[in-house]
Amino acid sequence: MKFTCDRQLLTEAVLNVQRAVSSKSSIPALQGILLKAKQNSIFLYGYDAEMLGMTTEIPADISEIGTVVLSARLFGDIVRRLPDASVHIAADDHNVTTIQSGQSHFSIVGIPAEEYPELPHVSSERSIRISSQVLKNMIRQTIFAVAESDAKPIHTGTLFEIGNGKIRLVSVDGYRLAIREEMVSSEEQDLSFVVPGKALQEVSKLLLETDEPCTIQVGSRHILFIIGSYTVIARLLEGEFLDYRAAIPQTSSTTITVKTSDFIDSVERVSLLITDRLKSPIRCLFDEDTVRLSSYTPIGRASDQFPAQLTGNSVEMGFNNHYLLDALRNAEGDQVKIELNGPLSPMKVLPMEGNSFLFLVLPVRLKASED
């Protein structure tokens, strides 16, 4: 295998693909990047053999076709520091690979490509196309609520529901729920699947780099995201996802309209006394035309307030400050509508108009000693 290519293009490709590479594996090849030189392109593959795979291609001047697997960490460190605008790479029959750029020369031992597992195949029978920017925003506004614990592995991913010209993403972790919905041009009906949060984080990073539409292909066990020159493949999660519709309160006794930035700033201020060691809920009193916030920890007390428009009953509730901030920071619009149904029912955060997003934040039961 022999080829010459642009160093910057190679560096970007290696740094992206190596995020899908297994950091620990009993198969040495899976800790590497598979390079394939054919025709006028170099194809790069990263795969952890469990959850995630990524491929891409870059243009190159191919002198000799071939394949080799190189250590992702070492190869990435080398190409990132090469001095010249171009790089020449050659691998011999024993997988010894030379990397040259300007006056720099490296010779490293590769792994036979035959030892690299084949990536899963996904048919293109069920596919949709969606704006990259829309999908990026939908992921950003729901991934914060994906469960980090694998007590219920299905909830470490985001539910996709496609049908009736809409795509809906749903994440839940037991303490909050996030829903984001958009119109989409698709003839698919009643299509639902759960994508691992880890895969969506990598998809989101790649979506930053392109304005082209993203194509999603769904198979029985795997999913493909085609983003520009990159393809991300992920294993779909299996199990029974929460019946999220049943978790959403259908009625409310209090509706509050607030300026989103006012609420965020106020929560951040009263959170200054709360740390990982000194945990305490934020007490929120929704009353007439004012929202009053307070916190209490062994190092002191804090209080703040901001104006709001309230319809219905006054209510006092407690919230985890991080969960409350996540919902507010991911809401779109200068103002949001908040619906409450008593101190122990979840808070609903909604747009002023429409139903493009819905966030639920479960309250924390307040103690009398916190008054």
Rank of each mutant, 00 (worst) to 15 (best):
Thr156Lys: 04
Asp243Ala: 14
Asp150Asn: 13
Gln189Thr: 14
Thr255Glu: 12
Leu208His: 15
Asp243Glu: 10
His222Asp: 09
Ser253Thr: 15
Gln217Ile: 06
Lys166Phe: 11
Arg221Glu: 15
Cys214Thr: 12
Phe241Tyr: 14
Ser229Leu: 09
Phe241Thr: 08
Leu224Ile: 13
Ala246Thr: 15
Gly165Pro: 13
Tyr175Thr: 13
Gly174His: 08
Pro196Phe: 04
Glu238Leu: 14
Ile233Gln: 05
Phe225Glu: 01
Pro153Lys: 04
Val194Ser: 06
Ser220Glu: 11
Thr231Phe: 04
Ala147Asn: 06
Arg168Gly: 03
Gly163Ala: 04
Glu212Arg: 09
Arg180Pro: 01
Ser192Cys: 15
Asn164Ser: 10
Gly165Leu: 09
Gly165Tyr: 08
Arg176Asp: 00
Ile226Leu: 15
Glu240Ala: 14
Thr215Phe: 05
Val194Cys: 13
Val170Asp: 01
Leu242Met: 14
Arg235Met: 06
Val170Glu: 00
Thr254Leu: 08
Glu148Gly: 14
Thr254Met: 06
Glu187Arg: 11
Val184Met: 06
Thr255His: 10
Phe144Met: 04
Ala199Asn: 08
Ala178Phe: 03
Ser229Val: 12
Leu242Glu: 14
Arg168Thr: 10
Glu238Gly: 11
Thr254Ala: 11
Asn164Thr: 15
Thr254Tyr: 09
Val218Ile: 15
Phe193Trp: 05
Glu188Gly: 06
Lys198Cys: 13
His155Phe: 15
Ser171Tyr: 01
Ser253Leu: 10
Ser171Asp: 04
Gly163Cys: 07
Arg180Asp: 13
Thr215Trp: 04
Phe193Arg: 02
Ala234Thr: 12
Leu191Asn: 07
Phe144Val: 05
Gly157Cys: 05
Ser186Val: 03
Lys166Leu: 05
Ile223His: 02
Phe241Gln: 11
Glu182Cys: 03
Arg168Met: 09
Ala234Ile: 03
Glu209His: 09
His155Gly: 02
Glu240His: 12
Val184Glu: 00
Tyr244Ile: 04
Ala199His: 00
Asp173His: 03
Lys166Tyr: 12
Ser252Leu: 06
Asn164Met: 09
Glu212Asp: 08
Leu191Ala: 14
Ser253Glu: 10
Glu212Leu: 13
Leu208Ala: 15
Asp211His: 15
Val170Ala: 05
Ser252Glu: 11
Glu187Trp: 12
Ser253Asn: 09
Leu206Met: 07
Leu177Tyr: 00
Arg168Phe: 03
Glu181Leu: 13
Ser229Asn: 14
Thr251Cys: 06
Glu238Asn: 15
Leu169Ser: 04
Pro213Tyr: 05
Val203Met: 10
Pro153Ile: 02
Ala234Arg: 02
Gly228Gln: 11
Glu188Tyr: 08
Pro153Cys: 10
Tyr244Leu: 07
Leu191Val: 11
Arg245His: 15
Ile227Ser: 01
Gln250Ala: 13
Glu187Gly: 08
